[in-house]
């Protein structure tokens, strides 16, 4: 029953987020700040993880090809498919749930604990619009992060395959180009937009409606990570059924 109440509260919150907008000049500054904090500050970890996971995917694929009838280009093909379809949009989003999700929850939760949200409300400012809307807009740039993750994942796979001696560069590149379906990219970017919305709103909800003190801020951050991850996984399943099956 508690979960149903929370789901209802979440959708009511979304309604409030899009009402009574903040002054345009202030909103512009807030969006730029959020782009820096949520997107630009996440690039380092995304670059690092994408490169190495792409490498590991290609090595694992190469090591599991024992049959001489299977061509070497399969390494590039499997790396591309894994990275574009699942690793970049879903795996990176789970990592972002930990990074930006807990950041959003703890920053909004701290504002709740120290009455900063009450201060906004007393001034007649729609605190949900002020705090959450800029995050949603900033995370519209999230597919750009996923695009970088895709490129670096495949690039990491190429480096690991060629310099690890598992296959030739030509075979890997041929595999990457082989049987490419452009809709898979569209599917991946549609997922990225949905995950971006989840990443902006679920942690905000957990932070905004938390009660208690500093300890509860920590608990809310953990809960935000868990719930954001769970919802991303469920959304991934539903989108895959709707778009690919």
């Amino acid at each position: 029953m508690k979960h149903f109440t929370e789901i209802g509260a979440y959708f009511l919150m979304l309604g409030q987020v899009f009402k009574r907008p903040t002054k345009r000049s202030v909103l512009k500054e807030l969006i730029l700040k959020e782009v820096e904090e949520l997107i630009l500050n996440s690039l380092g970890i995304v670059v690092f993880i994408s490169f190495f996971v792409g490498g590991v995917v290609s090595i694992q694929t190469a090591l599991n090809i024992n049959n001489p009838l299977i061509p070497d280009l399969l390494v590039g093909f499997a790396t591309r498919q894994s990275v574009i379809l699942e690793f970049a949009p879903t795996f990176i989003s789970i990592i972002m749930a930990g990074k930006i999700g807990s950041f959003i929850t703890s920053s909004i939760g701290s504002m709740r604990v120290t009455e900063q949200i009450d201060a906004l409300e007393v001034m007649g400012i729609n605190s949900l619009n002020y705090l959450v809307f800029p995050k949603i807009i900033a995370l519209l740039f999230y597919p750009f992060v996923i695009g970088i993750a895709m490129f670096l994942g495949i690039f990491g796979g190429w480096i690991a395959t060629v310099y690890g001696g598992f296959s030739s560069s030509a075979a890997f590149i041929e595999g990457v180009q082989s049987k490419f379906i452009p809709f898979h990219l569209i599917y991946a970017f549609i997922k990225s937009f949905v995950f971006a919305f989840i990443l902006a709103t679920v942690p905000s909800f957990k932070g905004y409606y938390m009660t208690g003190g500093a300890l509860e801020v920590g608990k809310a951050s953990t809960a935000a990570f868990v719930w954001t991850s769970v919802i991303i996984i469920i959304a991934n399943y539903v989108i895959t059924i709707l778009l690919l099956s």
């Binding site: 701290s110 504002m111 120290t114 009455e115 900063q116 009450d118 201060a119």
Partner: peptide, 9 residues
Amino acid sequence: VFQGGALFD
């Protein structure tokens, strides 16, 4: 004026 000030950190 809030008890803890409620200044924006």
